[in-house]
Structure formats: C-alpha cells, structure tokens
Design a protein around this nucleic acid. Structure first.
Lengths: 140, 140
DNA sequence: CCGTATCCGAAATGATACTG
DNA sequence: CAGTATCATTTCGGATACGG
C-alpha cells in the first residue's frame, strides 16, 4: 500500500494528539488538557470570551445584552470562573450607580485567538454540517 | 506581511470577532457560531474527538477506555451527536461478538485541528492559569 | 447598576440492569 | 461487545427577592 499525502497528514495529527496527552507535558498533579480545557469547554464561557473580544472594556449589563440568552446568574458565574482562571479582569468603580468593567487579560486574548479559529471553522463548515444532519435524519 | 502582528493585534481581533457575528456570514435561519459551536462546546465531545484523533479507527470500548471518566451512556450520546453532525463515521460489523468502529470524517479531522490548537493552548498556559487561581484565592 | 442569595424545575449525567 | 432502557442523582439555569 503506497503512502499517500493524506496518510502522512493523518499520522502527523495522530502524533500531535499523543504528544499533548503524554505525561511529560503536564505536571503530576493534573492533566492540563482535562483540567484546563475542561474548564472552558462550555458554551457560556466561549460566548462570553467572544463577546469580550468585541470591545476593549465591557460593562456587566452590556455583556448580558451581547451574550444572547444568558441569564444574569450564569453571566456572573461564568465571569467569576474566567476571572479566577486569569482570563478576565474586573474593575469596580465606587460610584452610584455602580459601574463594573470587564476585559480580557493578555492570557484571555490569546485564548480568544484559539476560540476565534473554532468560530471561524463553524462558520466555514456550516453548510457541510447542515447537509450531514439532513443525511443522518434520512437514514434513521 | 510588513506590519508587525502586535501593532494592530487588538483591533484586528475585534474586527474578526465582529465579522464572525455579522449577519451576512450566516443564513437567516441560524447563527453558525451559536448553533454549531454550541453543539461541540462540551467537554465530552471535545475529549472524544481528541481520542478519535489518536488512532485511525477505534472500537466503542477502546474509546471508553481512552476518554477517562466517560460513562457508557454519555459516550453513546456523544458519538451519536457527532455522527449526526458529520464529524464521526461509524461502521458496524455483523459478527458475534459485535464489533463497531468509529473514526473521524475529513470534516471531523478539520475540527480536530482546531481543537488541538485549544489543547495546546491549555498545555502551554497551564502555569499561568494555576498562578492566576492561586492569586484569586488569596484575594477572596 | 451590579450584583448575591435562595429556591425550584429542567436537563444532563451516572449507575444499574438487561439484550441481540 | 456494544449498546438500550430505566431510574437516581447531580448539576444547570431561570425566576425572584433583596442589598450595596
């Protein structure tokens, strides 16, 4: 069996996946992929980070408008989690009425880069996915 | 590229975020980012795709071993969802005992590429995140 | 305005038992 | 082996009330 270009590509990916999960990449306490990626792999975190990427600084209620469908509670919970992990910074002004601003830290902006890639992928492959769904529905 | 990346990095990102969400990118029925990304933005999907990237074809129980902590039920549910969206292909052999193989479609492998980037980001920035968590704990 | 606290229903997930 | 079905449990998330 001749090795085609595609085969090489596949083996390359396979190697990279294994590399990420290999023990020497992470500390002994935890696997970074499981612990860290598992922390951001939820839709509210992803949509919140994308929304924060739209502007330099955003106020709480502005953010609530931008992340469609999120409740006040979930936005608070999500922002705290992102703040705890160094993705988001927060500044509260002692005014009346109060004003609180959120923005992405440099770390957060680097994560945004990767999420943007994912979002672009969604946009690019939308048609293929919709087609796959129709195909799957037929088979059932 | 003559202009350095850092100079206009922030503005560039802001523009790209807005572009993804702009109406003309998606159909009128749905926003690809919300509908599609929201579909894969859960940890079991992400870990399953990463596991499938490790090997060319994987059997159900092998996969269950590879995705640590997943239950049989959630693996089934996740695989069906990925199959429905054209990310995963499935072949069942009429043998006893039964054998079922799963693998990533070309579309799935292109998604894997993006997820790998995210996983790499986690690995690379692990230390910064752990530091941020400690810092946050102190402030509370 | 920007939260927190609480409660409650809904949804996601796990555990277990069973089947072709 | 690779599921499905069922039930129990945990978690998520919305609604509401309240406070700085």
């Amino acid at each position: 069996m001749a090795v085609t270009k595609d085969d090489n590509q596949y083996l390359d990916i396979e190697e990279r996946v294994n590399k990420i999960f290999s023990p020497e990449r992470g500390s002994m306490q935890f696997c970074p992929v499981k612990d860290i990626l598992g922390h951001f792999a939820d839709k509210w975190s992803i949509f919140t980070i994308l929304a924060l990427g739209k502007r330099e600084k955003v106020r709480f209620n502005e953010l609530k408008e931008m992340v469609e469908g999120i409740s006040q509670r979930m936005l608070t919970v999500t922002l705290r989690s992102l703040e705890e992990n160094g993705i988001v910074a927060r500044k509260m002004y002692q005014e009346i009425p109060p004003r609180v601003e959120y923005w992405l830290t440099p770390l957060g902006r680097s994560l945004l880069e990767k999420i943007l890639e994912l979002a672009n992928w969604s946009s690019t492959n939308m048609d293929a996915i919709v087609a796959a769904r129709k195909q799957f529905a037929k088979k059932q």
